[in-house]
Amino acid sequence: MSVMLRSKDLLGIRDLTPEEIKLIIDTASGFKDVLKRDIKKVPALRGKTVVNLFFEPSTRTRTSFELAAKRLSTDVINFSVPASSVVKGETLKDTALTIEALGADFVVVRHSSAGVPHFLSRILRASVINAGDGANEHPTQALLDLFTIRAHKKRIKGLIVVIIGDIAHSRVARSNIYALTKMGAKVRLVAPSTLIPLEVERLGVEVYNSVEDGIRGADVVMTLRLQLERQVKGFLPSPEEYFNLYGLTTERLRLAKKDAIVMHPGPMNRGVEIETEVADGPQSVILEQVTNGLAIRMAVLYLLSRRRRTR
């Protein structure tokens, strides 16, 4: 009953205890009920203000946070880079303080550099929520993934979860590794050796070079988006080659448990990391992840609303 989040911010899964992770997921179940109703809005955070501060393009995550905030009756401001003063040379600190002066209670931040949310959390009274910082973390994505897994498997402990893709550059993978290992799942990573961070085994995961070996017997198969626009050059011969070696195909999926679920954080490159038949197949829970993301973000906003620092 008395479990609460210890911090005013959600910066990463790394800082959370298993009890806190469970609290967020349990709370999200209650919010999922709200999302099934005709009237999908509750008055819980009336009068609060959420600022989405996005220094990197994002439609899905920003929209999800925006809708989650609106469902809780907050006012939402979207502050995105091209429209803001950042291009005029304003520092990160000044931007943040300006937003706080507008009366923000929550700042949802995405930035291409790791650590930006942590920096902001130290100078702002508002709760800071990390919506993705560089290759570091994307905590709400991992939480919604765990919520989705638990909804299907009724547990997380002891499950075999395989994550396939560019682990080295993926904040989704990193947050999921922290979250899944904390909750007692067995995590396998599959990637070309150029896209696996050195000594990643120290996080308590197993590394497989063969996608078939990695998928064999898995309860959950998670593929990551190959970030074609970014760092792929030099790490991979071509997207076609990647599909041949690591793409999630119907044939490969057969090696997993019969009732295994297929997950992807989106947006997908069909025919690169995942075959269309698998993405749209009966084992895919990809669209459910999107809905669950709303419930998780509502839960995070709600739970952090009590944790404001008093100065």
Partner: peptide, 23 residues
């Protein structure tokens, strides 16, 4: 019916009301 999200004391209570399911 869960009423946590409709309470008027969310901001004054020490403990945050637990969100339970409505069915």
């Amino acid at each position: 019916l869960d009423i946590a999200l409709y309470r008027d004391d969310i901001h004054i209570k020490d403990e945050q009301p637990v969100v339970r399911s409505t069915d």
